[in-house]
């Protein structure tokens, strides 16, 4: 049962991502992206990472999606402006390239001598927190600076960018 749910969710994640290739309206694409991200959150949960599952829902599905949708609304995009309903003519090359990339990665990853004996144990949020504010503390601070830098950059651009 566990396996069935896992593969089913994975299929949803992949198919939803694939759908972004086809849809024409940005809102639809955003919705497919949300579906893919939520499916991924479920996968995280199934893999035993409950904290990440929650964060995935909050940050991606919550925050980032809102950003996307907000921008779509601001730009007031209608589908006729994004007229590329069908795939552009030169789609074969990139498609083959991506396929090759995937096949290569698959072949290379398959060589991995995976021992199947490991028991699945959930890593509790507490362990993650310990790691985060233990050895990774310096980086947490650094990430804070990164966010600040992004904030400053975004503020400047949105202030000066208005023509």
């Amino acid at each position: 049962m566990y396996e069935v749910i896992f593969y089913l969710t994975a299929a949803i994640a992949v198919l939803a991502a694939g759908a972004i290739l086809k849809v024409s309206h940005p809102v639809h694409a955003a919705l497919y992206l949300v579906i893919s991200l939520l499916a991924l959150a479920l996968i995280f949960f199934l893999l035993g990472a409950p904290l990440l599952a929650a964060l995935q829902v909050m940050i991606y599905a919550g925050a980032i999606m809102v950003l996307f949708l907000f921008l779509i609304m601001v730009m007031n995009l209608r589908s006729e402006r994004n007229q590329s309903l069908s795939l552009p003519s030169g789609w074969k090359g990139p498609a083959i390239l991506a396929l090759i990339l995937w096949l290569e990665l698959m072949l290379l990853l398959n060589r991995y001598p995976a021992e199947e004996t490991n028991e699945m144990t959930a890593i509790e949020p507490k362990a993650v927190g310990h790691a985060l504010f233990g050895p990774y503390l310096v980086l947490v601070e650094a990430a804070a600076v990164l966010l600040l830098a992004a904030l400053v950059a975004a503020l400047y651009l949105s202030r000066k960018g208005r023509s």
């Binding site: 991502a17 893999l47 991506a98 990665l105």
Partner: peptide
């Protein structure tokens, strides 16, 4: 039990799909 390799391959598929989206759209 899900073998690690399967997860990795699904991840690789997602990665390639994202790449394809960038290349095509």
């Amino acid at each position: 039990m899900i073998p690690l390799t399967h997860s990795l391959i699904i991840a690789a598929l997602l990665f390639s799909l994202g790449l394809l989206i960038i290349l095509l759209r």
